[in-house]
């Protein structure tokens, strides 16, 4: 085999030996990067959010828009990856890829098979999740927990990918919940983890301004957008959140606004401008307390001479 090939090769090059060729210039690569991009979308499905309390059918609009957006992401490149999570009042779970074996789908119309599968799986898993909801106690959505799960998922994919492949990961949160500082610590932990893992955090809020999540976007270089009307959600998503971070610099996108970097105090979970900071563990309190609740350091009660006290005023 080798011999025959060598022979034909020799015969071939002897004929061509006198030919001297010029180097051809390679054309610039027409297409973009050949990197894989992983998108994790977190949909807030908590029934107690104001958006859904006003009009429950808006969830359908939101879910439909998100599915269409997710499919547009898959449409960008053959190797793009997708995961969708539902964030509920008591639990967060993956709705795509679902926990069960993927359903076997056949095309019913002109839609691409994989897109159809995304749509079917998401709707099926979401309806199961919503049906299992039975308590009526209003609790806030566990967004920080959902982001942590998404980060774990991304870390797993990152670890199992074969060498030589670059993976760009990002998380998109679509939520209509209000702002609440009760998960402040959890939020900060996931934001800085995301920053360390090079995961971009995008936030699309449907109802109210979310200052804490906005901090997360700022920390991870993501985009923050408050959608003026839910009916146009898909167009907003496609317009702002579909471009991947590398291409974003080539497009004109909403400029970053001034971020409210107020911290929440550890005692009442309220956002404060000025407060007390423990000199040992840097916990923040809105009122002075003689014992730090986090690290149990005992402070001297400030005497009449405030300069002697150990407490430290800090402007944030």
């Amino acid at each position: 085999m080798v011999l025959s090939m060598q022979k034909s090769f020799e015969r071939f090059y002897l004929k061509k030996m006198n030919n001297i060729e010029l180097r051809t210039e390679n054309e610039p690569d027409v297409s973009s990067t050949d990197e894989t991009s992983l998108l994790v979308i977190i949909i807030d499905t908590n029934p107690t959010q104001k958006l859904l309390r006003d009009k429950a059918s808006q969830l359908t609009t939101v879910v439909d828009s998100v599915i269409a957006f997710a499919n547009s992401h898959l449409m960008q490149k053959a190797q793009n990856k997708l995961a969708i999570m539902a964030c509920h009042s008591k639990t967060s779970q993956f709705v795509y890829p679902g926990p069960r074996k993927p359903v076997d789908v056949r095309q019913v119309d002109g839609q691409y098979e994989i897109f159809l599968q995304v749509e079917k799986t998401v709707k099926q898993n979401l309806s199961l999740l919503l049906a299992s909801e039975n308590s009526t106690i209003a609790t806030e959505s566990l967004l920080a927990g959902a982001i942590a799960m998404a980060l774990c998922y991304i870390a797993r994919i990152q670890r199992t990918k074969s060498a030589g492949i670059k993976l760009n990961s990002r998380i998109l949160i679509v939520s209509g919940s209000g702002d609440s500082a009760s998960q402040y610590m959890n939020y900060m932990n996931v934001f800085f983890t995301a920053q360390k893992q090079n995961v971009v955090l995008d936030v699309c809020t449907l109802d109210q301004h979310l200052s804490l999540l906005q901090q997360g976007c700022d920390i991870t270089n993501g985009l923050y957008l408050k959608v003026p009307q839910v009916s146009a959600l898909l167009q907003f998503l496609l317009w702002v959140f579909l471009p991947e971070p590398p291409i974003r610099e080539k497009l004109v996108l909403p400029p970053p606004v001034k971020v409210d970097y107020r911290a929440a105090c550890f005692c009442h979970r309220e956002l404060i401008d000025i407060g007390y900071v423990c000199s040992v563990c840097l916990s923040i309190f809105c009122k002075f307390s003689p014992i730090c609740t986090t690290c149990h350091t005992v402070f001297k009660i400030p005497g009449p001479l405030a300069v002697k006290s150990k407490k430290k005023k800090m402007k944030l």
Binding site: Q107, D109, G110, E113, F115
Partner: peptide, 17 residues
Amino acid sequence: NLKSALLGGGKPWNMSS
């Protein structure tokens, strides 16, 4: 046709019976 690939509608592709 791009819309129908993305969102559905139209005729199924002819190998998906």
